[in-house]
Design a binder for these strands. Structure first.
Length: 565
RNA sequence: GCACUCGUAGCUCAGCUGGAUAGAGCACCCGCCUUCUAAGCGGGCGGUCUCAGGUUCGAAUCCUGACGGGUGUACCA
């Protein structure tokens, strides 16, 4: 439920009733429990405009709140804050509705927005490395989030499958003559070997160069080799996707090369519209605020990634009818996207109303704050990173010794992959972040394990109880009320995370929810002997609803829960 | 040089459209398991929110400048 909107509407109504001619600002969550559940801080700002003291305005607002079942108490505090307490009976009955609803009272958008999410986008010439992790994980969460809230989501994996290096790669693949799949088992090595041969063997280099030309002119033989190469490389990516449990599949691939045919028309159209002009022999679009232009066509007639991106954005807006296009790409390309969006709108490839956003993110750094590399300075392959995560998780649970031997591998996988994903998602995506194994695989603090532990603890209580849950939720203790209100906030959190493409809003919420539950649990016994049956039933229901909310939140993050830890 | 971005506790990070005494986790110190998972909970220590101005009743948040870090800067993607 959209709790904040409901409260905002109440405040808005009081403005009308009181004849206050101003637009109220939004209520905000109370900064402290003593200040209630929500607070309205708009009275101070209106003081000058209305010629009244903030406290006068505040009391005018309060006087007009009238009879509403969801607010139990209001007060004017300090200079003119209005503190608002929700009625615990009202909260309790909403929670009773929530636990009977699969969607936890989270509404589905009545008018779905067609949203394209462009993410992962690995280069087919190389193995996936840690640089692809953030895009893949953040993008996947956005897809799940948008979809859950009811938007029409279209996944786009804009794989890099075109460029001069493929001439060399297919020539080398041909000459190595081995079984293609196994020889491409380590793409990184394959690329290096090809490069060595290219640099040392002039006949091979000539063949490679010839293959680039033949490839670009549509030669059947080279195209066949190239398709074979891309096919194998893509399968490697799919292995990683399966390991990570992300949604991307072969149907979501819309490769760079698929836009090749449209590129001349894009350049022509930009030129015809007078948007692109020639400069130093290249066809360029100059954009206000950038001193370097977006180059649409090279001096030699070739096209660049900017042209491909323009073709792609046009395809997404026109063919896919996207109303929102999100590019989950690292922050270094912010300049490029600024130009791209400007040109796309100016050229009319995309309507003005379409939301174009660069969901940018920072770099992954190691513990000492340097770019995350292997000991010898190479890029860390994603496959190795994920293997290490699972291996470390396995070691931990073996030491703990609470899992059955046959379950260990699966549990280790859930924990290890979950920890890596959560680490990516829980920090503000815009800044660089430090990747530290000890931190991400910890049970303390804002980690996936802490949430999984909270969930597992609740499952354990439910198992001990055994029988079906009964009764109603009663909110008596202060911690119960706070937990209850927190549970009702989930939709507001998901909505703002979706609006701003900020997955860490969700992780922060889940962490706060889990810590609140832990406190509640420590202070309010559930199954102990002296607990009144009605209260016991209520607390069981509250625990169960908390678990469901954690599970739903983690599901949107693409992280699995465990019944036992 | 120019552009973008960041600067919050010893470390890693939250802090939403400006609001009350700036919050977590780690580390360090102290307490809590005969009973629901102690991978937990409670308490303590720790801050000139880089600095200087400005706007405002009110600034970590907005604006300007300085300093410091990162990134990008014409035919690679």
């Amino acid at each position: 439920m959209k709790l904040k909107s409901i409260l905002n509407q109440i405040i808005k109504d009081t403005f009308v009733k009181a004849g206050i001619e101003a637009k109220p600002i939004s209520v905000s969550e109370a900064s402290k429990p003593e200040f209630g559940d929500y607070q309205f801080n708009g009275a101070m700002a209106l003081s000058k405009k209305l010629g009244k003291t903030p406290r006068e305005i505040a009391s005018q607002i309060i006087a007009n709140i009238g009879d509403t079942e969801l607010i139990s108490k209001t007060e004017i505090a300090g200079p003119g804050f209005i503190n608002i307490w929700l009625d615990s009976k009202w909260v309790a009955s909403r929670l009773d509705e929530m636990r009977l609803d699969d969607r936890l009272l989270i509404e589905k958008n009545t008018t779905p927005m067609t949203t394209v999410v462009d993410y992962s986008s690995p280069n087919m010439a190389k193995q996936m490395h840690v640089g692809h992790l953030r895009s893949t994980i953040i993008g996947d969460t956005l897809v799940r989030l948008f979809d859950f809230l009811g938007d029409e989501v279209i996944l786009q994996n804009h794989i890099g499958d075109w460029g001069t290096q493929f001439g060399m790669l297919i020539a080398y693949m041909e000459s190595s003559g081995e079984d293609t799949y196994s020889s491409l088992g380590d793409l990184e090595q394959f690329y290096k070997d090809a490069k060595i041969k290219f640099d040392s063997d002039s006949d091979f280099a000539n063949t490679a160069r010839e293959y680039v030309v033949r490839l670009q002119s549509g030669d059947d033989y080279c195209l066949k080799l190239w398709q074979q190469f891309i096919g194998v490389s893509l399968t490697h990516c799919e292995d990683i996707y399966a390991e990570l449990g992300v949604l991307l599949g072969r149907n979501d691939v819309r490769a760079e090369s698929s836009y090749n045919e449209c590129l001349p028309a894009i350049a022509k159209e930009l030129k015809a519209k007078g948007i692109a002009t020639e400069s130093d022999g290249a066809l360029c679009v100059f954009v206000d605020g950038s001193d370097t232009p977006l180059i649409v066509q090279k001096g030699d007639g070739g096209f660049l990634y900017a042209t491909t991106d323009l073709a792609a954005i046009k395809y997404r807006a026109r063919e896919l009818e996207a109303q929102r296009i999100s590019y989950v790409v690292d922050a270094r390309q912010s300049g490029h996207f600024k130009q791209l969006f400007d040109v796309a709108k100016r050229a009319g490839f995309v309507n003005k109303s379409v939301i174009l956003e660069h969901v940018s993110f920072g770099m992954m750094l190691d513990k000492s704050g340097r770019p995350f590399k292997t000991r010898d300075g190479g890029t860390v392959k994603l496959a190795n990173l994920l293997d290490e995560a699972v291996a470390r998780a396995k070691q931990m649970i073996e030491e703990r010794g609470t899992q059955k031997p046959e379950d260990i591998d699966e549990v280790a996988h859930t924990i290890g992959i979950g920890a890596v994903k959560y680490a990516e998602l829980s920090v503000n995506r815009q800044s660089n972040y430090i990747f530290d194994w000890n931190k991400i695989l910890s049970f303390d603090g804002n980690t996936s394990l802490y949430l999984q532990y909270a969930y597992a603890r609740i499952q354990s209580i439910l198992r001990s109880h055994g029988t079906k849950l009964e009764g109603k939720i009663l909110l008596i203790d202060e911690l119960e009320v706070r937990l209850g209100v927190m549970l009702l906030k989930i939709e507001d959190v998901l909505r703002s995370a979706s609006r701003e493409s900020m997955p860490h809003y969700v992780t922060s919420y889940l962490y706060e929810l889990s810590t609140l539950f832990m406190k509640f649990y420590e202070h309010n016994p559930i199954l102990k002997n002296n607990v009144d049956p009605k209260i016991r039933d209520s607390r069981l229901l509250l625990a169960d609803l908390t678990a469901k909310t954690i599970r739903q939140g983690l599901d949107i993050l693409g992280i699995k829960v465990l019944d036992k830890l």
